[in-house]
């Protein structure tokens, strides 16, 4: 078992979705060598030849980014890996990674959701499916479109290992474009990131019902309070939920800019109109969050309302009337 001969400066990205391609492009544009892995041959081909990717239309990919379809090639080149796949495919992709990764790799994930099976956090999946121990999460209000457009943005990197946050800051920070904050609260960052998707649906519902900015502000504040209650019961730290991964994520996901709307916010709006298919990471996070809350004997009225509307048990309008009656009196 010989140690792999890595390029210490290279970032390996697993997943050529909008976030992976945008992050890779920003890093490559800043002079960092990047290899991105995709299972889709046409995506690899398009990135390498055309310098475009249909998952990020209209965006030109800089020369420092190469795409590969062989994961073994990626892990032999890059020690520092960013997992940027959907939560549904995370388990499968991590199993593939587990077959080729080495104990010297470092992996951070950028998945703002829990794993579909068993309400597990993605860092738990990394530990279960791969030999990698040094892992972490990057989370926060960085939208793929912002990163691709070169706007200044920030993420928090949380890991128990200082080495992981140090390497994340060294390899993912690009002056004036990407700033990385550090934290040791992995549980909090992962839960905050996942739950903010669930509460984004609630804000979408409120906006769809046109409740007004005052009630919207109350809802956002109470959402953070609920998230914190659940997150701290599960081992997270309170301040993480009012940080980039929690409040930051919720604000950006529930805002509309240049016609761009996050899927969870869109779901909330559509539920008011009664024409939504209740799928997506936000709703899955809501259902998982509620299960976790019940396991802790916690009452989370907003989350419960989102799930009951999603399940068709109550209409959005009925729920809106009841929700503020059930919210706890003490802040």
């Amino acid at each position: 078992m010989k140690p792999l001969n890595f390029d210490a400066e290279r970032v390996g990205i697993l997943g050529a979705g909008p976030f992976g391609v945008a992050l890779g492009s920003m890093l490559a544009g800043g002079g960092r060598p990047v290899t991105i892995w995709s299972t889709t041959a046409s995506v690899v081909d398009s990135i390498n030849r055309e310098r475009t990717c249909d998952r990020l239309p209209g965006h030109t990919i800089p020369a420092g980014l190469e795409a590969v379809s062989d994961l073994e090639e990626l892990v032999s080149k890059a020690r520092f890996l960013v997992l940027a796949v959907s939560s549904e495919s995370a388990c499968d992709r991590l199993q593939t990674l587990g077959r080729v990764a080495d104990t010297s790799h470092i992996a951070v994930h950028a998945i703002g959701a829990l794993a579909p099976e068993g309400d597990r956090r993605i860092s738990q999946l990394i530990a279960e499916e791969t030999p990698i121990l040094r892992s972490g999460v990057v989370a926060g209000p960085s939208m793929a479109a912002d990163i691709a457009a070169g706007r200044s943005t920030s993420l928090v990197c949380a890991s128990e290992f200082d080495e992981v946050t140090r390497e994340s800051r060294r390899l993912l920070s690009i002056p004036s474009k990407m700033r990385l904050y550090r934290s040791q609260d992995v549980v909090g960052a992962e839960l905050a990131s996942a739950l903010s998707g669930a509460y984004t649906i609630a804000v979408g519902l409120a906006d769809g019902l046109e409740v007004g900015i005052g009630i919207r502000a109350v809802l956002v504040t109470r959402a953070i309070s609920e998230m914190t209650l659940l997150g701290t019961a599960l081992g997270g730290t309170a301040k993480t939920f009012s940080g980039l991964a929690g409040l930051g994520n919720l604000l950006v996901r529930s805002s509309v800019e240049h016609g761009r709307i996050s899927p969870s916010y869109r779901l909330g709006l559509d539920l008011v109109k009664g024409r939504a298919e209740c799928e997506g990471e936000g709703m899955r996070a809501a259902i998982a969050g509620l299960r976790l809350a019940r396991s802790q004997n916690l009452s989370l009225p907003i989350l419960e309302t989102v799930v009951s509307i999603g399940a068709g048990e109550v209409s959005a309008r009925e729920a809106a009337l009841s929700i503020f009656e059930t919210v706890t009196e003490e802040e």
């Binding site: 078992m1 140690p3 210490a8 080495d102 104990t103 010297s104 121990l133 080495e163």
Partner: peptide, 10 residues
């Protein structure tokens, strides 16, 4: 696995 990898740097 080779556990020494856990002790290696970049």
């Amino acid at each position: 696995i080779d556990p020494r990898g856990y002790l290696r740097d970049a």
